[in-house]
Every structure is written in structure tokens, then in C-alpha cells.
């Protein structure tokens, strides 16, 4: 049989068992090299369609930024209010018939209690003078024959008492004192505010869950379209002997990149918004004589944001791949 010059100078290719000549270490190495290659090439694929990639990343970013931003704002409010809670005071209204001397000795006793740092005595006369000055009912008070106001002991609890449980224990003890008519926590509203913040945080969590579902759908749908656009390629690689894992891999990495880009977008959005709010918030707190500064995204929150973005991206693509890759078989 005649052989052309081109053919005869080449080496014959012999059939051989695949990979037997390779050392196990080389194969593991090749496995990681392949993963790295897929990781980079899937990023390259996204890079080639920058507009649609950016839009998908932006959708994920906005969906992540909403709950994350809400969380950061609520954390700030909580931090601010916890400062107020430390300055919570307890007012003890003393019964009318208790003598001044008795009240003074009671004040001294209370100063020795655990959980009380300071006791300030306001006599009935002082209370009346203060009320007259602040309320503007001076004339009405003049018509009264008797001072209607009780004497008050103002207690400053220690910081350890700021916790609701120990605060209510302290209140209970104070109420059992004979001379005391009423014991009232002045900062009740701080607790209510905390209650509102808790409601807000729970809402942020629920909103976050809903938006996480939305991200799953967005990534899943995007990956689904990519799968169908690359249908031919999938069929060819299946015919060449690619396992399902091999075919799945680039799509999963694409989901990973979408998630990561979305999370970074969200981080930038939240940081940007907080940056824009920082100056007006500082001005506002200056008006209230406060040193409060708006806190940004801390390390833990940032890490959580990145992780949830990546995990949602992976999960979304996993769902799409699981549903749609099986359907593509060579015919």
C-alpha cells in the first residue's frame, strides 16, 4: 500500500490502557490543575459577556444589600440604645407620711446595696420647686393648700443591672420596702425600643430569607439559559466520555462567580450607603450632644455576606444543573 511522505514520517499511535503510565500523584495534581483551570475559564466565559454578567451580579447584589443594610442599621440603633440603657434610673416614690430623717437613713442603706451606685434624694419641696419651674402650672400650684408631690429617691443602678432580668429583681426588692409607695424604671421606653429593634431584626431575617430564594431563582435561571446555549457542547463532551461531574463543574463554578460578584456588589452598596449616611448622622448626634458615630460593616458581617452570596450562587446553579443536565443526552 502506498504511503504519502507526510504520513510516513509520523509515529504510529498505539492503543494503550488509559493512564496506567501515570503515577497516582500526577493524577491528583492533574485533578486540582483541572479544577483551577475550570475556575479561571468559567470566569473568562463571564468576562466575555460583561453586560449580562454585571446585570446578574447587580440583581444578586441588590437582593443581598437590602437585608444586610437593614441589619447594619438596626445594629447601630441597638448599640446606641444600649448606651442609654446603662444610664437607666429608678425613681422611688416615698409614701407621704414618712419622715425626712427616715428617708435620709433609707438612702444611706440603699447606697450599700449591691447593684446600686448612687442615690440622690429629692425632697418634697425640691420636687415642687422643680415642677413649678418646668411645668408652668405655678399659679395652679399656688391655689393648693398642701404639697401634692411625694419625696423621691433616684437610684443609679450599676451597669450589671442593665440586663432586664436583674433589673426587674432589683425593682421587686425596692417595692417591698415599707417606705416605698412606687418604684419605677425611668427607661422603660428603652426596652420598648429594643423590642421594636427585635421586631425589625426578625423582619430583616424574613426579608433576607425571601431574597435568598429570589437569588436562587435568578442564578438558577441564568445557569439554565447557559446550559441550553451550550447544549451542543454538552452533547459532544458526553460522547467523548465526560462524566456528569465533569460537565456539571463549569456551571457550578459559574454559579460560584455570580454569587461572589453579587456579594461584593452588595458589600460595596452597603458600604457606600453607610458612607453617605455618616456625615448627616454625625451632625444629628452632635445636635443631641452625643459622640455617636455610624458603624460600618464589621469583619464578621462582611464574611457572612460573602459566604452567603457564594453559597447561594452555588446552590442556585446546583439546582439548575441537577434539573437540566440530565435532560441533555446525545441522540
Amino acid at each position: 500500500m502506498k504511503r504519502s511522505a507526510r504520513k510516513s514520517r509520523t509515529r504510529p499511535i498505539k492503543p494503550e490502557a488509559r493512564g496506567k503510565s501515570q503515577k497516582p500523584r500526577g493524577r491528583i495534581n492533574a485533578y486540582f490543575t483541572h479544577h483551577l483551570w475550570v475556575l479561571v475559564s468559567s470566569l473568562g466565559q463571564l468576562w466575555r459577556t460583561p453586560l449580562s454578567t454585571l446585570m446578574t451580579a447587580a440583581v444578586i447584589g441588590i437582593a443581598l444589600a437590602l437585608p444586610a443594610g437593614l441589619h447594619v442599621l438596626l445594629s447601630n440603633v441597638q448599640q446606641l440604645s444600649s448606651g442609654w440603657e446603662g444610664s437607666a434610673q429608678v425613681s422611688l416614690f416615698i409614701k407621704q407620711d414618712v419622715s425626712e430623717k427616715h428617708i435620709q437613713s433609707l438612702a444611706n442603706t440603699l447606697r450599700d446595696w449591691d447593684g446600686v451606685t448612687e442615690v440622690h434624694y429629692i425632697s418634697r419641696e425640691q420636687a415642687l420647686a422643680e415642677f413649678r419651674e418646668l411645668s408652668g402650672f405655678g399659679d395652679a400650684l399656688d391655689s393648693l393648700t398642701e404639697n401634692p408631690l411625694p419625696a423621691v429617691l433616684v437610684l443609679q443602678p450599676t451597669l450589671a443591672q442593665a440586663e432586664p432580668a436583674s433589673m426587674s429583681r432589683l425593682l421587686e426588692r425596692l417595692r417591698q420596702l415599707d417606705a416605698v409607695d412606687q418604684a419605677q424604671l425611668d427607661m422603660e421606653w428603652v426596652r420598648r425600643l429594643n423590642g421594636i429593634i427585635d421586631v425589625g431584626k426578625r423582619s430583616a431575617l424574613l426579608l433576607g430569607t425571601l431574597l435568598a430564594l429570589a437569588i436562587l431563582l435568578v442564578v438558577g435561571n441564568t445557569i439554565r439559559l447557559t446550559i441550553y446555549a451550550r447544549r451542543e457542547e454538552i452533547i459532544i463532551t458526553k460522547l467523548i466520555g465526560a462524566t456528569n461531574a465533569f460537565i456539571r463543574r463549569p456551571f457550578l463554578y459559574t454559579g460560584f462567580w455570580y454569587g461572589l460578584m453579587g456579594a461584593v456588589t452588595a458589600w460595596l452598596l452597603v458600604s457606600g450607603f453607610l458612607g453617605l449616611l455618616r456625615t448627616p448622622v454625625s451632625q444629628l448626634s452632635f445636635l443631641y450632644d452625643s459622640q455617636f458615630r455610624l458603624g460600618g460593616l464589621d469583619f464578621i458581617t462582611s464574611l457572612f455576606l460573602l459566604l452567603s452570596g457564594v453559597l447561594l450562587g452555588l446552590a442556585g446553579s446546583w439546582l439548575a444543573v441537577g434539573r437540566h443536565l440530565q435532560a441533555i443526552e446525545p441522540t
Binding site: I13, R27, T33, G241
Partner: peptide, 26 residues
């Protein structure tokens, strides 16, 4: 190179074999 990458060959081996196969078909 695709069948070799699918089968998990090392990149250096891939290059060598692809060139051999391309040489074979000119």
C-alpha cells in the same frame, strides 16, 4: 485536548499527546 482533559491527564502529557495526534493528521 478535550478527551485527555476529560480523562484527567496531566497538562504536560496533554500537550505531548495532542501534538502527536495533530502531527499524525498533518
Amino acid at each position: 485536548a478535550l478527551p485527555l482533559i476529560i480523562a484527567g491527564y496531566h497538562p504536560s502529557e496533554v500537550g505531548r499527546r495532542v501534538r502527536a495526534a495533530l502531527d499524525k493528521v498533518g
